[in-house]
C-alpha cells in the first residue's frame, strides 16, 4: 500500500508539519463548520419538500475545503454535485447552490468574476473541461490553474482517461482531486477498480499521484498547495486521491441501509474531519466554546438568509428559457417563445 499523507491524526495531534499557521487553520475549521451546517440545512429542506433531491457531502468537508483553500481568484474550480463546500468557499453563493436544487436555472449562474462552473451532474464530463480551462489559461499566458473534483466512481468513466491523458500530454495546469468516499451509490470502492489506489493511476499518464487522508484538512491543504504550485510553475498536472467517506446516502433519495452496514459509517464517523481540528485548536489554546457558538450562529444566519433569498425570487418565466439558449434568439425560436408566453406557461 502506498503511504497516505497525514498531518493531523484523528486525535488532533500533529504527526507532520502543518503547512499553515493556526490562524489559517481556524479559518479552515470555520469554513468546515459552516459547510456542515449548510449540508444539514439542505437535507432538512429536502425532507420538508422545499428542495429537490440533494447529495449530502457530510464527512468530506476537509477534502473539499482543504483542497481549494489556496486557490487564487483567477483559478478555476470545476466540481460535481457533491462539492458544495468547495464551491461555496470559492465564492459560489449558498443561494445559487440552493437554486440548483429548487429547479431554478439561475442556480447555474455563477456571479461575475467567480471562476467556478456550476456543479456537474453528469459523472466525469467536467474533468475534461478543467483540462480545457487550464490549457486556455496557459495560452493566455496567465499562471492560473484549474482544479477539478470528482468521486471514485467517476474514475471508471472514459472522460477520466481522456482528461488525464490530455492533461499529461499537454502538461496543462490541472489539479485532479478525486474524493474517494468509498461508495459510488451502492458500488464499493473495492469493486470500482482493481487498482490498489486511485492515486497510482497517475503513473499511466505521466503525472504525479498522491494519496492523502481526505479527512485531514491540513494534509489536503499541503498536497493541494504543492500541486497548485507545480501547475503554476508550468510543471503540469497532478492527481490527488483524498481518502474519505460518504457519511450519508448517495442522495436524499437513496437508502444506503440496503447495501452497507451502519457499523461502517460509525467507524468513519470517529474519523470526523471537523472534530480532529477542533481538538487540535483546543490543545493549541485557540478554540473556545464561545467562539464555536459564534461561528455556528454566524453560519446559521448566513444560510437562513440564503434560503430566504432563494425562496423569495420571482419564478423563472417561460420566456427566460428561450432567452438563455442562444446569445440572440433565432427567429424560428422567437415564434415558439411567443407561443409559450401566450399559452400562459410564463
Amino acid at each position: 500500500m502506498t503511504e497516505m499523507l497525514q498531518i493531523l491524526d484523528v486525535d488532533g495531534t500533529l504527526v507532520g508539519e502543518s503547512p499553515v499557521d493556526d490562524s489559517v487553520t481556524r479559518g479552515l475549521y470555520e469554513a468546515m463548520v459552516t459547510a456542515r451546517i449548510f449540508d444539514h440545512k439542505a437535507t432538512a429542506l429536502q425532507r420538508q419538500g422545499r428542495l429537490a433531491t440533494y447529495a449530502p457531502y457530510e464527512g468530506q468537508e476537509a477534502a473539499q475545503i482543504g483542497a481549494v483553500a489556496m486557490l487564487e481568484p483567477g483559478d478555476w474550480l470545476v466540481a460535481s454535485y457533491r462539492d458544495g463546500a468547495a464551491m461555496q468557499s470559492r465564492g459560489y453563493p449558498w443561494t445559487q447552490l440552493l437554486l440548483t436544487r429548487t429547479g431554478d436555472e439561475r442556480g447555474g449562474r455563477p456571479p461575475a468574476g467567480v471562476n467556478v462552473l456550476p456543479p456537474s451532474i453528469t459523472v466525469g464530463a467536467h474533468m475534461v473541461h478543467a483540462v480545457g480551462l487550464a490549457w486556455a489559461e496557459s495560452l493566455k499566458g496567465t499562471d492560473a490553474v484549474a482544479m477539478t473534483m470528482f468521486g471514485d466512481g467517476a474514475t471508471s468513466e472514459g472522460d477520466f482517461h481522456e482528461a488525464m491523458n490530455f492533461a499529461g500530454v499537454y502538461q496543462t495546469p490541472t489539479i485532479f482531486v478525486c474524493q474517494n468516499n468509498g461508495w459510488a451509490i451502492s458500488m464499493p470502492r473495492a469493486r470500482q477498480t482493481a487498482s490498489e489506489t486511485i492515486a497510482q493511476k497517475a503513473d499511466g499518464y505521466g503525472m504525479p499521484g498522491e494519496l492523502v487522508d481526505g479527512n485531514d484538512v491540513l494534509a489536503m491543504y499541503d498536497a493541494a498547495a504543492r500541486a497548485v504550485d507545480r501547475a503554476r510553475r508550468g510543471e503540469g498536472p497532478t492527481l490527488i486521491e483524498a481518502v474519505t467517506h460518504r457519511i450519508r446516502g448517495h442522495t436524499t433519495a437513496d437508502d444506503d441501509g440496503r447495501y452497507r452496514s451502519p457499523e461502517e459509517t460509525a467507524r468513519w464517523a470517529e474519523r470526523d474531519p471537523l472534530e480532529r481540528v477542533r481538538l487540535y485548536l483546543d490543545a493549541a489554546g485557540v478554540w473556545s466554546r464561545k467562539w464555536q457558538e459564534e461561528i455556528e450562529s454566524a453560519a446559521t444566519a448566513a444560510i437562513e438568509a440564503a434560503v430566504e433569498e432563494a425562496e423569495s425570487l420571482e419564478p423563472f418565466t417561460a420566456e427566460e428559457i428561450f432567452d438563455a439558449m442562444y446569445a440572440e434568439v433565432p427567429p424560428p425560436l422567437a415564434i415558439q417563445r411567443r407561443r409559450a408566453a401566450e399559452a400562459g406557461l410564463a
Partner: peptide
C-alpha cells in the same frame, strides 16, 4: 494542435477553453 485519439477530450477541452473566452 494535434491531439490523441480522444473525441470526448477534443470537444470537452475545446469547450473548456471556449468558456474562458478563447474561441476554439
Amino acid at each position: 494542435r494535434d491531439t490523441p485519439i480522444s473525441e470526448q477530450a477534443i470537444i470537452g477541452a475545446a469547450a473548456g477553453a471556449a468558456m474562458t473566452g478563447i474561441p476554439t
